[in-house]
Design a protein around this nucleic acid. Sequence first.
DNA 1: CGCTGGGTCCTTTTT
DNA 2: GGACCCAGCG
Length: 923
Amino acid sequence: MTTYTEAQAEAISCLDEPLQIIACAGSGKTQVISQRIAAILGLPGVDPRNVVAFTFTEKAAAELKERVLSIVEREHGQLNGLAEMYIGTMHSYALGLLQRLVPDTFKYSVLTDITAQLLVDRYSRKSGLTSCPTTAVQGTLRRYRNSKLYLQVASVLREDQIDYSRVPAGVLESFEKYAELLEQNAAFDYTEIIRRAVHYLEGDPYEDDDFGRVHEHVAKDIRYVVVDEYQDVNPLQERLVRGLVRFGANLCVVGDDDQTIYQWRGSQVSNIVTFARRYADVRQVRLDDNFRSSIGVVELGRSVAERIPANARLPKSMVAAGHQKWERGDLVALTMDDPLAEATWIVDRIVELRGVAFQDRPDSGPRGLSWSDCAVLFRSVTNDSGPLVEELRQRGIPFIVKGLNRLFDSPEIQAVVGVFRFMVSEIDDGALRALWDEAQLIPATGDWTRAIRVLEVGRDFAATRRHAVYNIQRLYLDFLEALDVREENLPGAPTRAELVFYQLGKFSQVISDYEQIYFTTEPAAKYEGFAKWLQFQAPDYYADADADVGYATPDAVTIATVHQAKGLQWPAVFLPAMRRNRFPARVMGGVSLRHVIPDDALDDPARYRGTVEDETRLLYVAVTRAQKYLYVTFAPIQSNQQQRNRSEFFDHIAAQQWVSTAASPVAGAKLAPHPLHETPQVTLSFSELKYLFECSYQFKLRFLYGFNAPIHEALGYGKGLHDALAEVHKRALEGDIATKDAAGALVDRHMHAPFAYPALKEQLRASGIKALERYFDTHGKDITKTEFSEKQIQVHVAPGITVDGRIDLIRRLDTGEVAIVDFKSTERAQAEDVTRDQLHVYAVGYQELTGRSADVIEVLNLDENGKTEREPINDPLLVAVRDRIRDAGEALRTNNLPRLRVWDKHACGSCDLVALCRERPTA
DNA sequence: CGCTGGGTCCTTTTT
DNA sequence: GGACCCAGCG
């Protein structure tokens, strides 16, 4: 049982006033939030669905959720309905809200940075890109060159507080076009997800049904809102929060203004600083106690934070409250001759630290430090980590670099890119072969001639083959198959094969991204464009392709940027490359936001450019990552005129009394190195679980390596039907019973098949209507018996293992029994027991949700000749399914994901990726 | 010591 | 495209 400080306890128990928790680094913030949420759940009359908690990343969400669940299990035992508590990002919350309550947006898909940029470039005129004026000499923005900037403009215009009268009319006209293009494609970019949700939250409930439905939900269901990392909220997100609490829900925001490090992405420090002035009767609780670090680190951190002007900060004073002892020599600031010497010194020190006794918690015994207890934090990993990486590699010390390896720099990906340069006759057979030899990708059994044949047939664009059938992804997989490229066939050690497959899988994602936008382009032009894009655009987008395969965390030195280190901690932290113009970083030149949106249209334009204050906050984050040892080093780069001098930050640190300016050997006893073993969180979505049950290797190919199936032209059909039925049942719950004649309108609203050619579109529409009419004919009378539609479920199987899913429909039968219904729109051959297991997971989820058990499971086939299968829920099977999920989660954690032992008619026969796995049986 | 002009160099990343 | 560095000038 955790004991809390007075301040922590105050924060936990303050449940009925607006609360601002100001949490210094290392103050046990997550634990406090978890405990507070658990306390809310324990209040009489509070349902889990009354709680909404926002985090900034999915990872942080998984962690918070896990902590809340384990506290709840410990303190309240079984609690029903936990699946309906929301803990996650604002984006997924907003999307969920729209897709639950606003039927018109059910069909919308989400564009990533990359696909949004592809869209803007493909429709460079229609998107407004090339007509967008800029004060830079070029006059307007340009295709490819400025599309990223254009997307930033489009985001800022929606996310920030804008004085529109000061934005040039041409810019606004361009933006209108962009918004229209998104609309036409039934797509949201990340900003639009939030903006649209805000639109409904702020709307007048009497204006239309959708506003009314959102209004009612918020007023009735939402009673507690928690916002973590509040310092990183941008003005639009702040409106989302406002919208959620406008009917009196309790708001609690948690954050540390000193750790605002994403200003250039729109977060606004003033938001957290003025919170208490903007909301009435705010209680502020300061968590000043730092339990993480020694007094030396804490005091150093404090001195850094105090460099930030007081009017831009919330008053606070971090104090050391933990058990870590400070000893002279723990904190060191050193100057080296050059980056090479710096790297050598760091690696020497890492080696020296290995085995040094360290105590993680006041009540735990000492252990010997290991590689993974050391982190080297750079302002710019890409530019500065080279010498260190080289040194570590030479000395055989394991390390993980985040963000250094650019996917397209690897010889493997260059070989794959070569395939597409060959497709457009940029290189010949011999040159391609050389690339593949160079990358060592050709298996001993590989038949090069056969593989080339596949490409030659594929690039005969004049052949009257419908290009949609023979698409890029298909070609890629066919080529790999023809060449016999499989994990066990690749030259080299199995670990190398795993890494290569990870890269090949990433490339599959690259294809998917491109084809999602260019699917319907004529083949010749499509391949031409793809080859160009691969060479000129894509390399900049797909930066990170490092060895992050799977969930297992290796014992390795972490090399990361300060940004990536936020929220993490290590016993020993190195802060090298403390050079002027690097850290604090120099402001960048080039055509940027201010050439499109004038400064006076923005509240705080400087934040997009970067200020010394922002960099100081970054330094604060960096320093406070260390628990005990902190080594800050400077080494000039003689060859670079701008990077020869010490950073003012270095001088600040070196001048502090806790910091030594000469290194002494690490004191203390040596033990055997013993890395901290972290249990990785595993959250499986329902569809992931389905694949995991069916074949764990298929799961690995899809979700760990990233291989995607070729896009099917009819994609969207099943989802459209599904969404149409969801609307029918949701309306039924409101007492509005739809009938057969609504089928056409329903299909028109929900069916979005962006990859279908016109005739197929028509055909899909027609068969969609038929399917709905059939549904009304056979099940129309049951529509009134709807209990729930699209019910969120969650199964917490074991610590760290959770399954999330959604049940299509729950209804009462004539017999009074409760049926869980799953709609199927295609008769995808599926092994019988997988379906049954899958449905039993729903049954388990239903049980956790309601505390009751359902009676039967129904699979309702929407296709022609489709029949309903019904089976009673089998209690022993429920137990068995839980065990299976737990085993599956364990298998994931240990990366034990083998293929099926023998060819399975159903699983392998229907697997899109079987070519990467095994030989097809000869008929 | 202050100014000028030519040469040099160019970050961070979640949803 | 523009901030910074530095040599050279008055």
